[in-house]
Design a protein around this nucleic acid. Structure first.
Lengths: 104, 104
DNA sequence: GAACAATATAACGATGTCGATATATTATGG
DNA sequence: CCATAATATATCGACATCGTTATATTGTTC
């Protein structure tokens, strides 16, 4: 019950950060990157079953928001999680969801 | 780098939870509720400057996702935060955003 | 520099969600 | 039971974003 949970001056940025986490495919991407540390676009395409263009677009969004880091090596682009708080946030939410499910 | 950051069976639910946090007006509502503990629709309308219908709709979404709790008293409906993890999550993200801003 | 592979971008239709306006519901008081 | 106040719901147009398909870019190899 204190002041300024989300300060006005970063409210829109915060909303955009959360929007990154509001799509199942992006959560799957982050989940995979969390497990394996670093993956190429191809690997992500194979694991998710999504089309390459779709994965590239999601990665572009994630990278634009600094959620994810890109490393180019030859023909391949390797992505990894850049924002370490994302993992904590996901675990918090998932823990809460389990809790709600148990309570019900 | 471990297993199952966001387990498949709750991935869609997690995404929906994050979607609740992905709109500035909803973040403002949660921020106000965090400060004051409990507020009527009217109060939220006044503080945010949004139209009543819009606030009611956002509250409906938030309540549907169990983010927020509703208490009816006479003509008034009082809302308060129901999911305590939301505050932690918002603070994590805002801290990170500050950090990124400082680094730049 | 031509052929090929990995990734990125463009364009498109379908669907979702925003805020605004209008109307319905619910509860109180006279 | 009628008027009024607080809240909820319905509908609408504008705009964003999803996944798909097609194409462009980038880098490697011969």
């Amino acid at each position: 019950m204190e002041s300024n949970l989300v300060p006005r001056d970063i409210m829109h940025r915060a909303a955009r950060r959360f929007k990154m986490l509001s799509e199942p495919v992006r959560l799957e991407i982050l989940s995979l990157l969390h497990e394996r540390g670093e993956m190429s676009v191809q690997e992500l395409v194979e694991e998710t079953g999504q089309h390459q263009a779709n994965i590239s677009k999601h990665l572009r969004h994630l990278a634009g928001e600094k959620c994810v880091k890109r490393r180019k090596e030859g023909l391949f682009a390797y992505y990894s999680i850049n924002d370490p708080t994302l993992s904590s946030i996901c675990m918090l939410v998932c823990g809460r969801l389990r809790q709600e499910a148990d309570a019900a």
